[in-house]
Design a binder for these strands. Structure first.
Length: 270
DNA sequence: ACAGTAACCTGTTTGC
DNA sequence: TGCAAACAGGTTACTG
């Protein structure tokens, strides 16, 4: 569930609570995430001060005096900063801080990542091929229109490709295509210059609005204070198979593209 | 280079 | 009611 707005919500929640604090201990209860958490993590992090918390794509970047911690929430990850207390099920990693609070990483499905980086971040294999941030100037009509040229996969799969543009996952890809009036099954290379303009505009607007209300909560996403996001109340098509389109009343259709559920209005999206 | 698919893992929902 | 199957957010790695 964590797409860009959820990761940004998490970043904004934890940054003021951990920036400037020193890590006094690291507890790894379950190292088996997307990639194994290195056994020496405690040694590398302890006594280091947290300089900043930033975001690139869906990755959180915790900048330390020396090195970085690269965190991905995967499908089910969340982070809270809380007073020291007994760990619950799936609370895999704790960063114990100098104010005696704990930054706690929770991830039932363990598709997330907790990675130590001691080299230049921009060269990191997980970051180096990522496309532009959707809210940055570099993601514009010209860029998107160029990116679809010659591409034969569907426009929805194209938008979810993190090498094209980052942060757009299944939910927001579905929603952006609805708001743009574009059928998700359209071949990418057949998207016109005008449609590229509309898509860029809708993606930016959608993500801004979702961030403003704290992201989408589907099952158990919650921010640093444990509060849910409120964007799920505004979804137009995602998860609404067989319900009627909010705009024209036609039944929302559910299909599968690339093993992901796609929802769209066959009337509004052409 | 590109496109499609399987895999990683667990919890919840759906269907028989 | 019980149990099995289907399904869920993301990304990499492999295949053709």
């Amino acid at each position: 569930m964590p797409e860009l707005p959820e990761v940004e919500t998490t970043r904004r929640g934890i940054a003021p609570l951990i920036e400037g604090k020193t890590i006094t201990n690291v507890v790894v209860r379950q190292p088996r995430l997307r990639w194994p958490v290195i056994p020496t993590l405690n040694k590398y992090l302890t006594n280091q001060k947290i300089i900043s918390v930033t975001r690139r794509a869906k990755y959180l970047i915790i900048e330390l005096e020396e090195g970085y911690l690269l965190i991905h929430l995967g499908m089910s990850g969340s982070i809270k900063v809380i007073p020291k207390q007994k760990a619950q099920k799936h609370d895999h990693i704790d960063l114990v801080l100098s104010d005696n609070k704990v930054m706690r990483y929770h991830d039932p499905r363990r598709f997330g990542a907790f990675i130590w980086v001691d080299t230049a971040l921009s060269n990191h294999p997980l970051l180096k091929d990522l496309g532009p941030e959707p809210l940055a100037k570099g993601f514009n009509q010209r860029y998107l229109f160029k990116s679809v040229m010659g591409r034969k996969r569907s426009i929805k799969q194209h938008l979810m490709d993190q090498n094209i543009v980052v942060g757009v996952g299944n939910i927001y890809a579905n929603e952006a295509l609805f708001l743009s009036g574009i059928d998700p099954q359209r071949i990418a290379q057949n998207i016109s210059a005008d449609e590229s303009q509309i898509l860029v505009k809708q993606i930016k607007q959608l993500l801004r609005k979702a961030i403003a209300v704290g992201g989408t909560t589907l099952r158990d996403f919650s921010n640093a204070q444990g509060k849910p996001g409120y964007f799920s109340q505004r979804l137009q098509v995602y998860g609404r198979a067989d319900e009627s389109c909010h705009f024209c009343g036609t039944q929302i259709k559910r299909i599968v593209q690339g093993q992901r559920a796609t929802f769209f209005c066959p009337q509004c999206q052409q």
